[in-house]
Amino acid sequence: MKILAIGAHFDDVELGCGGALAAHAARGDEVYVFVATVSGFTNQYDQSVRSSDVARAEAEEAMKVLGVKQMFCGDFKTLEVEFVDSLNIQILRLVEQLAIEQVYAHWTGDIHHDHQAVARASLHSCRHVPRLLMYRSNWYHSTLDFRGNFYVDITDHWDAKEQAIRAHQSEMERTGAKWISFFRNEAENAGQRIGVRYAEVYEVVKWLQS
């Protein structure tokens, strides 16, 4: 099976669906990732927090950990992604050229500006892909409810997910490694609901069972 995970920034797919991607790779599926932005950004005081070069280097290391076959990168600036045709075309071309059969995309209810735009573009450009799941990749509240109704057992792949997240050393330093504790707790809670140690939960957009 050919899998495409779509994220706005380097680190989004690791946080949102890293365990599932590692599981796919372990089963022999072809796993691809598309990241829309260069992912460098500055804070509210115009101080550089992470350079684009560092972000990409960290992501490339994370992709190796997860077993991703190839990562494709867009050139949008962080916090400047819009639901525009240039983004749609980039995703649609990958879907068609790689003959993608299943997609992991941002949740459309995410409050992050870039995440919302990429989510909308994913739904638009992947409209002919038979399987599409939405993931969460941050811990912020939304006015919408994430309807998690599809679970993936990542018990055997949590270590790979954590290692991939830790590959983003610049973000680990910025957040004090809070990502690890938060997403481990999320995975434990999801796993408890379905009787496994660790799981990822998704909202189904569509799922064709053959």
Rank of each mutant, 00 (worst) to 15 (best):
A36F: 05
T37G: 11
S39N: 08
S39G: 12
G40T: 01
G40N: 07
G40I: 02
T42H: 03
T42D: 02
Y45I: 02
Y45R: 14
Y45C: 05
Q47G: 00
Q47W: 00
S48R: 15
V49F: 01
V49R: 11
S52C: 09
S52W: 00
D53Q: 13
D53K: 15
R56W: 00
R56H: 06
R56A: 08
E58N: 12
A59H: 14
A59E: 11
E60M: 13
E60I: 13
E60G: 05
E60T: 08
M63Y: 12
M63T: 05
L66G: 07
Q70H: 15
M71E: 11
F72Q: 01
F72G: 07
F72C: 06
F76G: 09
T78H: 04
T78E: 05
L79P: 02
E80T: 06
E80R: 14
V81L: 07
S86A: 11
S86H: 01
L87M: 09
L87N: 06
N88H: 10
N88E: 05
Q90P: 05
Q90V: 06
I91D: 09
L92G: 11
L92K: 15
R93P: 02
R93K: 14
E96W: 04
E96K: 15
Q97D: 15
L98W: 09
A99F: 00
I100W: 08
E101A: 12
Q102V: 06
Y104V: 11
Y104T: 12
T108P: 03
G109A: 03
I111S: 13
I111W: 02
H112M: 02
H113I: 14
D114K: 09
D114E: 06
D114C: 11
D114P: 13
Q116F: 01
A117Y: 04
V118K: 00
A119Q: 03
A119V: 03
A121L: 09
A121T: 04
A121Q: 04
L123A: 01
L123Q: 06
H124Q: 08
S125E: 02
S125N: 02
S125G: 08
C126E: 05
R127M: 06
R127Q: 12
H128Q: 09
V129K: 07
P130K: 08
R131S: 10
R131K: 15
S137D: 14
Y140K: 09
T143S: 13
L144H: 14
R147I: 13
G148H: 07
N149Y: 06
F150V: 01
F150T: 04
Y151L: 02
V152C: 07
T155K: 06
T155P: 06
T155D: 02
